[in-house]
């Protein structure tokens, strides 16, 4: 470990400890915003593990997140299983699904992958509603636990920390290096001996795993699980936009995007609830045309110029 990494590690530990103390100093409104932000930090950062190096815009977060929430709800209500068991099963199911989707689409052109993930959450929601209505009876799915908002927050913080550690390890590994080469030139990657399809599939599975885990942990927040709510296509887009806003070429980039965006998003949802979609659209345009490399890119440009 060199001194630069040491510095990052120290900053990381300080940030994590600071974040862990938030529920002690605040509760109610601000804690709930912090919980939402922590959820997006875990989701956006794990999304970037795959989409950052490969430049493939995965829109599957909503689907995997929904699987997490739905399986917890269904397992607890329909089958009387414990929250913990379901929180383990759900990510495994999502990982297997991610593998199948990855194997079917990631061997082909990237566009097919994007299109496939585009309607995925909606398609799974339709399937789940159909199965629920026809075979399981349309009873409500309740997730009743003793968790307080602070418990959920701490669990999300742990997941986010694990995501960062995983990302750090992957970036140092041959797998991470392979992904960077694939993002540069997939043909070269194949000819230097990289199994490009599997490398992408493995990272995509990682992303799916974490999205479902976050979905499972957040489920108790809703208490009542509705497929229409947990399988939210909008969530997929929010995760993409926050990651892009921060910058996806650095592990800590999404973190920088999530915090301001969550605050603005909350404010707009309360003050102009009908304009959230419009705002989402304008944010996408803003990023593409004016900050294509995110805040991190802007910052690195600035410091680069100052050095010169």
């Amino acid at each position: 470990m060199n001194s630069g990494e040491m510095k990052f590690l120290v900053i990381g530990v300080v940030l994590a400890l600071g974040a862990a103390s938030i529920p002690i100093v605040s509760d109610g409104y601000w804690l709930s915003i912090a919980t939402t932000a922590m959820m997006y930090i875990a989701l956006s950062t794990s999304w970037t593990l795959f989409s950052g190096p490969t430049h493939l815009i995965a829109l599957s977060t909503g689907a995997f997140f929904g699987i997490g929430g739905y399986l917890v709800g269904s397992g607890m209500s329909d089958y009387d299983q414990s929250f913990w068991l379901m929180a383990i099963i759900a990510p495994v199911v999502a990982t297997i699904l991610a593998m199948l989707i990855g194997l079917a689409t990631l061997r082909l052109s990237g566009v097919y992958f994007v299109i496939f993930t585009l309607g995925l959450a909606e398609m799974i929601r339709n399937l789940v509603s159909w199965v629920q209505n026809n075979f399981l009876g349309s009873r409500g799915l309740y997730v009743l636990t003793d968790f307080t908002e602070a418990h959920i927050y701490w669990m999300l913080l742990s997941v986010a920390t694990i995501v960062f550690l995983a990302g750090w390890l992957i970036n140092r590994s041959r797998l991470g290096f392979a992904l960077r080469i694939i993002g540069n030139d997939e043909q070269v990657a194949r000819h230097v001996g990289i199994n490009t399809a599997w490398s992408k599939v493995i990272l995509f599975m990682t992303t799916g795993f974490f999205a479902a885990l976050v979905g499972a942990i957040v489920a108790p927040r809703y208490s009542y699980i509705e497929p229409n709510v947990v399988f939210s296509p909008q969530l997929s887009f929010l995760v993409v936009i926050m990651a892009l806003l921060g910058g996806i070429h650095r592990l800590w980039g999404p973190l920088v995007g999530v915090i301001p965006f969550t605050l603005i998003w909350e404010a707009i949802s309360i003050s102009f609830p009908n304009s959230t979609t419009l705002f989402l659209g304008l944010s996408f345009l803003l990023i593409v045309y004016f900050i294509p490399n995110g805040f991190v890119g802007l910052f690195e440009n600035l410091t680069g110029r100052m050095r010169k």
Binding site: R180, G183, N184, H191, V192
Partner: peptide, 13 residues
């Protein structure tokens, strides 16, 4: 191992 007809280096590495 091979090289390519149109040189292909990895531009972001």
């Amino acid at each position: 191992a091979r090289t390519f007809q149109l040189v292909r280096i990895l531009p972001h590495l």
